[in-house]
Structure formats: C-alpha cells, structure tokens
Amino acid sequence: MAVLQAILDGLMIGGVYAVISIGLTLVFGVMGIVNFAQAEFLMLGMFVAYYAWAWLGLDPLLAAPLAFGVVFLLGAAIQRVLIRRVLKAPEVAQIFLTVGMLIVLENAALLMFGSGFKSVSTPYQTSSLQLGPLFISVPYLAAFAMSVASGLALFLFMRASWFGRAMRATAQDPMAAKLMGIDSDRMHMLAFALGVGLTAFGGAVILPYLTVSPTVGAQFVVLMFTVVVLGGLGSVAGAVVGGLAVGIIQSLSALAFPIQLQNLVLFLVFIAVLALRPKGLLGGAR
C-alpha cells in the first residue's frame, strides 16, 4: 500500500514537473537553446505568487496567471536583449549566457527579497481526501489540476491558433517558415516568453506546499533537465511523460533511501538516460 501511495503522490507532483519542464523543452525545440536559467523563472513565479498572497491576499492558485503574465513579459524582454544575440553563436556562448542569467537572477532575487525562506498559508494546506485506503493531499491535487489545465491550454494553443502553428513551423524549418511570411524573431520571443511563463505558472501552483527562497531554483535545475532529457529534449509530449516518470521515481526512491539521497537517484537516472538514449525514451532509435 505504501508503494501505491507513493506512486499516487509521485503522479501528483510529476504533473507539476511536467508543466515546469514544458517551458524548457519548448525553448529548446523552437530555438535550439538549452536554458540553464530556466529554474530561476520558477523561483520568480513563486515570488510573484508569494507577494500576491502577502500584499493582495490572493491565493497562489489564483495568482498563477499573474505569475505567468509577469514572467512572460520579463522573458520577452530577455529574449529581445540577450538570447537573440547568441542564436547563431557557438554552443559555448549559448551555454554560458544562460548560466550567467542564472547567476544574475538568483543574486538579484537575493538582493531584492532577502535570503530567508517564505511560505504562504492557505485553508486547504493540510487537508487531504480519502480514496479508499489512499490519501490525496489537497495542495498536491490542486497543483496537479492547475498543471493539467495549463498543459491543455498550451496544447490547444500550439494546435489550433495561428501563433502556435507558426511557432511549430519555425521549430521544424526556420527558413521555410520565413518564406511563408512568419517573423521568426517574433516566434522566438513568443516561445521564450511562453516557456519561462509556464515554468513560473508551475512555480506559483506549488507554493502552497513548498517554501520559496532565492536559491530554490537549484533544487529544480537537474530535476527539470532529467524530465526533458527523459522525454527527449524539444518534445512537449515527452516532457509530460518525463515529468510523471520523474515524480514517480522521486517518491518511490523516498521509500528506500534517506531524503538526502533522493536527488542522487535522479541524477544517476539522468546520466544513464543521457548515455543510453540521449534523444529521450520516446525518441527514435539512434
């Protein structure tokens, strides 16, 4: 029963992992850039939700769209000013530009918000639903539901809207997309803004059961990369599968190992996947 419970918990948190990682995979899919700073946008999303709660009394779940909006605009600006300039640069420049962004965002947050841990309190924080012999924690369920909703919204946007199709066209063949009159610069900006915005959204919905601090991103860096690499870097559907898988791996390994070693299991899975199937579990055979 403990195993079933762990799988259920894993699915719940895995849904959130999927959404925060979709942003990362989207940016890579459209621009070919691995954003090492992605987890910092999760941290920013958490802070937006925290201050919306502290100043406006807004529940983090309701503040999630606000977090999305704020970080969306920030992301558009960052794409315009920074990322755009290294799109054709060597990989080492791309890697260290985003690493530099990571350092700047983390320390800017440290300066602005202080180094302390902050958390919100909500009426449903400690409640849980009983499902036969299993329990579902309400904040987990709420975060999961919000993640599914945002994931579906993104899916519809990518499928049905002109922007979504234009973005996918740019990802597939930038030259052909350009010839069809698609402004690839604008598509890149949209993809990056949407990518970091979604991650911030995910940050807001997990705030009810986590605490936020400027260094919270560090906990999520390798986790997010494990998710996207498991599913195949650049694949949105892959990120969903990867997210659920990572959630389950994490909560199952919590049964067997002490808490400090939980991440170790994840790292080893990550290295193994990179070594054996770098195109992801869903990717074609090499």
Partner: peptide, 27 residues
C-alpha cells in the same frame, strides 16, 4: 557514458556528475 555526447548534452551530463559528487560528499 558521456564521450558520445556533444554540446549541450555533454554540458548537462557533466553538470549532473558534479552534483552527484556534491550530494555524496554532503550525505
């Protein structure tokens, strides 16, 4: 495991390896 990886993938794998060592040293 990493010798066939290039660019971003190599950077990611080595990043994780460094973190593995840090976690081991901490725990």
């Amino acid at each position: 495991p990493t010798m066939r990886l290039k660019g971003h993938y190599f950077a990611l794998a080595t990043l994780a390896f460094g973190e593995v060592m840090r976690v081991i040293a901490n725990s």
